[in-house]
């Protein structure tokens, strides 16, 4: 028993003493090892060529990401930019609610880092372009009825209803005939569902309308909505369903 515990602590020491080449979540992976990770977990939907046309893709409606353009919806970076490694890690780690993209939390950071390095080989954009700096999300003010009311005014002023509808059900006048960059039909999100695909915390929601969703009709409102207005709008959206976790600011963000 004692010998075993010595062996075990040796393993722990070995693992901890390993050179700290990691530069944060998702960074510094090995694309060669990442290819195996991709084949193990990702290929059946995203396809051997990284074109989002794996063997399961035709059976599902939110289509798997095509990696060849280097266009990604969920980012902390400004509209049009590549995502950061940490952004990709978050998407892989937490999954995309309501789609067949599961949470890959359990496969661990090591696997995710390697597969991110491999995913980047599908688009030449990763060689010529760099992600712009992440947006700064200020601390969340308290959730309050007054803030929700102001948020509704921002919703109206910003004409969110054009796509998302007067009652945020995703049924605005421009809701139909929308297409994403790959020509697939896409609908504005029904914000009353209580789940946002890329995360439900306040800062997750904040990020969506400030950065926009690349490859989709959802534009960036960074130039037309101030940070204060943005938090009010977050609170308005959170008021639409009891399922949203409230007062879950960037400090507490997972």
């Amino acid at each position: 028993m004692k010998r075993l515990s010595i062996v075990a602590s040796a393993f722990v020491a070995l693992a901890l003493a390993a050179p700290a080449r990691a530069q944060g979540p998702g960074s510094g992976g090995d694309p060669v090892k990442g290819k195996v990770v991709y084949e193990r977990y990702c290929l059946s939907c995203h396809g051997e060529l990284g074109n989002g046309a794996g063997e399961f893709a035709e059976w599902i409606t939110t289509k798997p990401r095509d990696y060849r353009q280097g266009t990604f919806k969920w980012r902390s970076t400004p509209s049009g930019s590549l995502p950061t490694d940490a952004d990709l890690d978050k998407t892989i780690r937490d999954g995309i609610y309501g789609t067949f993209m599961p949470t890959w939390y359990a496969i661990g950071e090591h696997n995710r880092r390697d597969v991110i390095a491999y995913i980047k080989t599908f688009s030449a954009r990763w060689k010529t372009d760099k992600p712009q700096p992440s947006i700064v999300i200020p601390a969340e003010p308290p959730y309050s009825d007054a803030s929700v009311k102001r948020g509704r005014a921002v919703y109206e002023k910003s004409n969110c209803a054009q796509c998302h509808g007067q009652d945020a059900l995703g049924d605005g006048p421009s809701a139909h005939e929308l297409k994403d960059d790959w020509g697939n039909p896409i609908v504005p999100y029904d914000l009353t569902q209580g789940h946002i695909k890329c995360g439900d915390t306040g800062s997750d929601i904040y990020r969506v309308f400030i950065t926009g969703l690349n490859g989709t009709p959802m534009p960036s409102f960074t130039d037309s909505i101030s940070p204060e207005e943005a938090w009010d709008l977050v609170h308005y959206i959170q008021s639409l369903s009891a399922l949203y976790p409230k007062n879950y600011g960037p400090a507490a963000a997972k």
Partner: peptide, 9 residues
């Protein structure tokens, strides 16, 4: 590839 996508509300 999307260059950016700006809202003009």
């Amino acid at each position: 590839a999307t260059i950016y996508n700006i809202a003009l509300p």
